[in-house]
Design a binder for these strands. Structure first.
Lengths: 93, 93
DNA sequence: CCTATAGTTAGATGATTATCTAAGTATCGA
DNA sequence: TCGATACTTAGATAATCATCTAACTATAGG
């Protein structure tokens, strides 16, 4: 994982709403946008914007099928992000 | 770690400059502001602002001694943050 | 075809924020 | 006491960004 992707992920997580959205996606094998949005007080346009950020960060994969956009967490990217955060140079004192 | 602190940390990490600053602090037992700033192209005022955010997020401890402000990573908070991120509900598929 | 559903895009707006300058406080050493 | 160093605070500015509305594309089902 290069620095650019790392920072994009860090930024993507920094909005609570987007974090919640990612969290919902992560809990399922796959989820359509409309299901993500159910009971969230945001418009479809706003969701679309957040999804774009998550995809752009490499955290979410989007598969189109008919009218639907199915979303899935890219677990490999998530693991790599955690791993890089874990390697944060914390000198042992 | 409650949600508020979690989000404050997430936000604190989301600025690359601030992440770099935290990284420098983490590498040492303790570090003065002036040492953090050496060779960073920012003013003392900007550094002061970032330090305030890091302290506010609970990631950094500040100890005053004479003219100096000594900074230290709060390793417990960092561990708790990683631990909470690790518990992200990633259903196993 | 027509209508409803799913999602996207463009553009506007208001809030947040990273940064600076300028001026302040506090401490140290001569 | 004076000047230098370390840091903070207040206020301004410009950039970023979360959100909305309105209009769009595309698909599914009668």
């Amino acid at each position: 994982m290069d620095s650019q992707q790392f920072y994009r992920i860090t930024k993507a997580l920094a909005d609570p709403r987007r974090y919640e959205i990612l969290s919902r996606i992560a809990k399922c094998r796959e989820l359509a946008c409309s299901d993500v949005r159910c009971d969230l007080p945001i418009t479809a346009a706003t969701l679309s914007h957040h999804i774009k950020e998550l995809v752009n960060a490499g955290l979410v994969e989007l598969r189109r099928e008919g009218q639907f956009a199915h979303l899935k967490l890219r677990r490999k990217a998530w693991r790599e992000y955690l791993s890089r955060l874990g390697k944060f140079k914390t000198a042992k004192f």
